[in-house]
Amino acid sequence: MTAEIIDGRKIAAEIQGELKQKINGLQAKGIVPKLVTILVGDDPASLSYLKGITRTCGETGLVTEAAKLPADATQKQLLDKINELNRDSNVHGILLFLPLPKHLNALEAESAISPEKDVDGTNPISAGKLLLGEDTFYPSTPFGVQELLVRSGHSPEGKHVVIVGRSNIVGKPLMGIFVQKSKGANATVTVCHTATKDLVAITKQADILIAAMGKAKAVTADMVREGTVVIDVGVNFMPDPVTGKNKQVGDVDFEAVKEKASAITPVPGGTGAVTSIMLMVNTVKAAEKLTA
């Protein structure tokens, strides 16, 4: 059996359609949701994400601006910029690109973003609220994973979700989201990591397996039980064996695993395709709350 392919682009378009309606409603009241990103230096991955955000914002009807600081910016300059955006009532969402240059303190900067504008959920207060089950902004990647599952008819409710990877931006928030007693959650959740001794024994238990370890093709077919829903959060680059060009691959050995899984997200076109629209969803929610 070949797996159903969960089409991230299609789901992103669906979410975007709904979001445009909401934005029209806000615009009628004279409110234009605005997202400001902060980029320190010129990390290529961040620049590429910024391009995607700018495009999606434009298509969806949000205003966006990039506040660019030089690679040698001081911590004080960064904090001053964040505080300025915190105070600016025209700004509803703030996103700080990571990684920051090594001389800067990321935790302090993330903590400075007002929780009301923390649309990527990186402030520890936002993370705490997420785990506690209070209203907050979910980080966009895990939020996107939840949307993909629910909208493709694979809600995690009552299911066993196994997450491989325990990073602060993906693995941990995914656990926090799926253990809540709420719609689209309510799952039994296991978090493990790549150094886990008997990883296969655990991944084979999963109804829904989420790969977030950042290791190309690390989830192989023998690690997956027949009928599992497989979500791939990995973004890795590998040379194509034929063309020799670098191409994007996930953490899952897609070709082999799709023969066993019941549903699977591709890379690209899966989880990555919904990430930036989730950021827009959060920004619109922030605009609604801040102007209510």
Binding site: N123, P124, G128
Partner: peptide, 13 residues
């Protein structure tokens, strides 16, 4: 109980 402590603990701080 404060969200900041919950968040810090979770982030390994």
């Amino acid at each position: 109980f404060h969200a900041m402590n919950v968040g810090h603990a979770w982030m390994g701080q």
